[in-house]
Write a protein that binds this DNA or RNA. Structure first.
Lengths: 191, 191
DNA sequence: CGTCTATTTGAATGTACTCAAAAGCGGTGG
DNA sequence: CCACCGCTTTTGAGTACATTCAAATAGACG
């Protein structure tokens, strides 16, 4: 469990006793590639932290088109924030792209920990703030950049993912169809 | 200062002493319509809470096109989250659309309050979580809905703003040009 | 009343999508 | 080990949604 403690240690300093209490609330699960950690329609009851492997979070719209919200590599948190907060059925699918070891923290444990260890509330506050900033930037990129520019930015930010995931999923993250993405890519390579 | 205390009271319960401490950190400023509360290039040093009036937050891209990030009516918080967190020069302009009374909370005070009154850290965590959920939904809407559908959703969510702000700004929020927005609107009215 | 900005309208253009079909690639079973 | 199946990627033609540029009209404000 070194990874998750490192992750937290980047923002707050827990005492050994606090670390022990925190760890006691965690559950570890192993998922095979292509399995689903969470399905749309379910209520999201946990936050997920990726120890190893690779996950993706996506939604499916009315026209049966997938939209990729986020990837989650080792060291990243993922969950259906809307469903987790509201405890309403969610819209997010979380799928395993590569065999993964995932740490689960239940919503109730998480909220109890906020009170027991205020530093953890601080940690999740900071985590959420950073997500919000990243999300705002992505929204602005979608409003002001062309698909080509968004792709270039994606390559710079997540160079490892480009080899790792099927390109139709990068297309979906960028916000274009796989067909268009393919054409765009070959145009870029010809330069 | 009833509004801001109400706002906080929706999520956490402060004691009178805590309320007094919190209030002592706040500064009130009055802004005239068309003035700027914050400019791109500046470091954002405060969180802003709108007591009355109306603000907008927007960015300007390389092609001199404005993109509206958010409106802020009475009872809403606004700020350049990226700049506030990183203390780097920001990209957000915050402009006054209607004469406004604004409450300022400096970053340093805010962080001191997190420690002095953990319930305030909880409050801002919840605030940020809700912003994130709203932002994620807006991103998905931009990826999966047409401009017309986004406009209809905007009308349902912010009915009062439609009369209140120039429609070029609604166009910018939706993510289309004012010309296209005008055509789209007249097409909708013809139905 | 005049000026400045916002809105409307039109024509031409571009970016990205849809549909269809072919080619490539990877895993699985015989 | 290779043949086949399913899924991903590529390519092409036609189309749609939204943009750009230009000009006219309407509104707001001093």
């Amino acid at each position: 469990m070194a990874l998750i403690l490192d992750n937290i240690g980047k923002h707050v300093a827990l005492t050994p006793a606090e670390e022990a209490l925190f760890l006691s609330k965690l559950e570890i699960r192993h998922y095979k590639a292509k399995s689903l950690v969470l399905q749309a329609g379910e209520v999201c009851t946990h936050s997920y932290f990726v120890n190893s492997g690779l996950l993706r979070g996506f939604t499916i719209n009315d026209h049966i088109v997938e939209h990729l919200m986020s990837f989650a590599c080792a060291g990243w948190w993922i969950g259906d924030m809307y469903s987790l907060l509201s405890q309403q059925p969610g819209t997010l699918f979380i799928e395993v792209l590569e065999d993964a070891e995932v740490v689960l923290l239940s919503k109730t444990d998480q909220e109890e920990l906020y009170t027991a260890i205020p530093k953890l509330e601080r940690f999740f506050r900071i985590l959420t703030e950073n997500s919000l900033v990243a999300n705002q930037e992505r929204l602005m990129d979608n409003l002001s950049l062309t698909a080509e520019e968004r792709f270039e930015k994606f390559c710079k930010r997540y160079p490892s993912l480009i080899q790792q995931v099927p390109q139709k999923q990068i297309a979906s993250y960028i916000g274009v169809t796989p067909e268009f993405f393919s054409k765009m890519k070959s145009k870029l390579l010809r330069k």
